[in-house]
Write a protein that binds this DNA or RNA. Structure first.
Lengths: 78, 78
DNA sequence: ATGTTGTACAACGGATATGTTGTAATTGAA
DNA sequence: TTCAATTACAACATATCCGTTGTACAACAT
């Protein structure tokens, strides 16, 4: 899978989860000590985030990191 | 969970999988167009890798990204 | 028009990931 | 000893992540 597509998918999934929680980018960001802009960049797929950053985001969304990752490579090996 | 611990766990899990496959760091690295040194740094937990880098590594190990991630935040939300 | 909220982009600086080269320690074989 | 394979660390250059500030647009309300 292409890098760009992968990152866009990740961002879209994160946004879905956040919307389901009914919180804004700013609320999510502040709950983990970050800025709205930092969270926004991930959500639009404009950056390739680090592992620990994703871990913090998952924490803010109150889901396991697994949930945030899930589905992207799902049909390639399983 | 602390950043350092998280990264060490990730590296250890990757090494486990690689050893189970019976391939060297060099073999894994070359299978995805990388150097042994680059792979080594992840395995020792000395770096905080990017999402796409982990995706490539998972591809080289022929597992889903989920498998590489699993367990680190497992008891915090589920 | 003004204010508030939510989202998006640009630019800057410091920190760091990645690719690369070089090197060293260990193990095993000849 | 010599040679090869595996793993580890250091240092450098380039790219980019992340934090931060400033800004812009849309929707909604007063």
């Amino acid at each position: 899978m292409e890098k760009e597509t992968l990152l866009k998918n990740l961002g879209a999934r994160k946004r879905e989860i956040r919307n389901m929680m009914g919180i804004s980018q700013k609320q999510l960001a502040h709950s983990i000590g970050k800025d709205q802009q930092s969270v926004q960049r991930l959500e639009t797929g404009n950056i390739n985030p680090t592992y620990y950053y994703l871990y913090e985001i998952a924490d803010g969304l109150e889901v396991d990191l697994e949930v945030l990752i899930k589905r992207d490579g799902a049909d390639s090996h399983g």
